[in-house]
């Protein structure tokens, strides 16, 4: 049974990635294009300033893949791969949840686990470190930024696990509804503390050293030595659109995963459960079916 569930998770995940890719290609790619255009223009302005000041001009790295490849094939491979990866791990979590989180319908459980995945892997880390388009993010801070982001991912997943356990422990005393609310409150407090402790990206020491104190790494206007603005800051509307489409993309991915996986899982599980019920056994181990 576990084999069939996991292959279905993988399949549903790849499908979810494909749907997310269609969305991303139509809606997000034009925004990514605008961000890259901003970045190129800014680099050119910076190079002109450097040249005028007699400083060495940074030539930038060579383009390994053209924008056409990146925005049509690369993003598709990335999203389908990510979907398949999430689908495989999601199926494992789903299997482990069966019978351990109360009597929940297979399709409802599929939605709940996907919701936890969306929140733990993306949405909660996003609250502290939101997705950024190209042009935002200093190369010199990639190490601390990656470490901080993954810290948020690990913490939110661990706290969701802990909250699920807590909810189950409290359910006999407070009832399902109140126990779930208490567990959610505990999650919010715990992740809130972590978010308060972790630094803002603009406050990383390399950034403070180079740019002064700012909340984020979003590029500010570029000024010449006399203080005249020669290139604007990152356009706010592009930033909003990108972040909005980033959320839409993940909601579509996890939503498709749950909606595709749920009915398939139910079809696999139904005969197994009916057999368990007719033989009177509440629990059945996977290897026997």
């Amino acid at each position: 049974m576990e084999k069939r569930i996991i292959t279905r998770g993988l399949l549903a995940g790849a499908l979810a990635g494909l749907v997310a890719f269609c969305f991303a290609r139509i809606f997000a790619e034009p925004v990514i294009g605008k961000a890259i255009a901003y970045e190129s223009g800014r680099d050119a302005a910076q190079a002109a300033l450097n040249q005028a000041a007699g400083l060495p001009v940074d030539s930038g790295g060579p383009d390994i893949f053209s924008r056409t490849v990146q925005s049509n094939i690369g993003i598709g491979v990335g999203l389908i791969g990510f979907g398949a990866a999430m689908g495989a791990m999601y199926a494992v979590v789903y299997l482990l949840c069966l019978g351990r989180v109360g009597r929940i319908q297979p399709k409802v459980l599929a939605l709940l686990v996907a919701g936890a995945g969306l929140a733990g892997i993306y949405l909660v880390p996003y609250l502290k470190y939101p997705a950024n388009p190209p042009a935002i993010g200093h190369p010199e801070t990639i190490k601390p930024r990656a470490a901080l982001y993954l810290t948020m991912v690990v913490c939110s997943l661990a706290f969701i696990l802990a909250a699920t356990w807590l909810g189950r422990r409290l359910a006999p005393r407070f009832g399902n509804w109140n126990a779930s609310l208490l567990a959610a409150l505990g999650f919010a407090v715990a992740i809130g503390i972590v978010m308060a402790i972790l630094p803002s990206l603009g406050e990383l020491s390399a950034n403070v050293h180079l740019y002064g104190h700012h909340a984020t790494e979003t590029p500010l206007p570029l000024a010449d030595p006399k203080g005249n603005i020669v290139y604007p800051g990152f356009p706010a509307d592009v930033l909003f659109s990108f972040r909005f489409y980033s959320i839409c993309n993940q909601v579509i991915l996890w939503g498709t995963l749950a909606l595709a996986f749920g009915p398939m899982a139910e079809r696999v599980l139904r005969p197994v459960m009916e057999r368990a019920e007719t033989t009177g056994g509440a629990g059945v181990t996977a290897a026997t079916v």
Partner: peptide, 24 residues
């Protein structure tokens, strides 16, 4: 629509589960 009473033993399914997690 059947609720979910069955419990999958992680020990018995560890090969598939471990493989899926590793891949993911």
């Amino acid at each position: 629509s059947v609720p979910t009473p069955l419990v999958v033993s992680a020990a018995k399914a560890r090969l598939w589960m471990g493989g899926a997690l590793l891949f993911g």
